[in-house]
Amino acid sequence: MSEYLTSSDFMILMIKIIVIFGGVMGALVYLTWIERKVMARVQMRPGPTRVGPFGLLQPIADGLKFLFKEDVVPANANRFLYIAAPVVSLIPALLSFSVIPFGPWLQVTDLSVGLLFIFAITSLGVYGIVLGGWASNSKYPLMGAMRSSAQMISYELSLTLSVVGVLMIANTLSLNQLVMSQQRTWLGFIPRWNIFLQPVAFLIYVVSAVAETNRLPFDLAESEQELVAGWHTEYSSLKFAMFMLAEYANMVTVSALATIMFFGGWSGPLVGPHWLKAALPTFWFVSKIFLFIFFYVLLRSTIPRFRYDQLMNFGWKVLLPLSLANILATSFVVAIS
C-alpha cells in the first residue's frame, strides 16, 4: 500500500484529479458570468460591467458575498437535514466528473460501467432538492420539492432510455470506448458521430436533460412567479451557493454526456506540433460542452415555462413512447445488419 502511495502512478492520478477538479470548479464559477452576460445580450442589456473588464471579476465578487452573508436557518426547520441537503446535492454532482474523459489521457478513471455510474450518481441529486424543500418546513419550498421529485422521476426514465439506442450501436458502457467507437469517418470527411445514427435519441436526450437539471422551460421546482424561489427559498449564504454550484455542475455533466454519446467526445482534427496534438482533444471536448451550455442559456432567455400538467403529459405520453419506439427500431436495424 505504501509503495503505491509513492509510485508515479499515484502521482499522475493526483495530478489528474487536481487538474480536472480545479478546472471544473473554475469553469462552474465562470458559467454564472457566461449565463448573465449571454442572457443580458439576448434581452438587450449590457449585463455585469462594473467589476473588472467586461465584468469578468463579478463571479469572484459574488463568491465573496456568498461567504460573508449571514447564514440563516429557519426556526422550525429540521436542522440536520436542512444543513445536509446542499451537501447531498453537491457531492453527487461533482462525483460524476471522476469518470468523464476530458481527453484521451485526461480522465481520472475509466470504469467499465462508466455511463451506469453517472446515471446512478446523478439520480441521487434529487435528494438534495427534496430534503432541502422538506427540511425548510415552509410551504413554497415543499411545493417546489414535490414538483421537482415528480418531474425528475418522470424525465429520468426517458433520459436513460434514450441512450439505449446509442449503447446498442457502440456495444459498451465505458465512456472512453464510447468516444473511441466514433473515431472513424464516412467518405473521409463526415465524422462517424452517433448524432447522425440516432437523431431521435438525441432530441429526447436534450429535452429530458434540460428537465433533469431543472432549467427553463422546465424549472417548475423554482418558478419564481408562483413559488418565490421554490425549494431553495429559505437558503442563504454558502448553502445557497452550493445548490447553485450543483445545478451548474449537473448542466456540465449532461452536456459532457451528450458530447460523449452523440458528438464524438474529444475527437476532432489534430494538427500542429506535438504539444498541440496533446492539448487539442481537451480543447475540442470543452468547446463542444460550451456549445451545449450556450444552447441552455439561449433556451432560458427565450422560452416561457411549461404548465405542470403539460410537463407531465409531455414526459409520459410523448417522450417515453418515443424513446421506446426508438429502442425497438434501433434493435431491428442492429439485428439485421
Partner: peptide
C-alpha cells in the same frame, strides 16, 4: 458485479426510495 451495483443504486436509491420520500412529505 459492477453492473448489478449500478442498477441497484439507480433503481432502488434513485427510484423507489425517492417515491417513498415523496409520500413521506405528504
Amino acid at each position: 458485479a459492477e453492473f448489478v451495483a449500478g442498477v441497484q443504486v439507480i433503481v432502488y436509491v434513485g427510484g423507489i426510495l425517492v417515491l417513498f420520500v415523496f409520500v413521506i412529505m405528504l
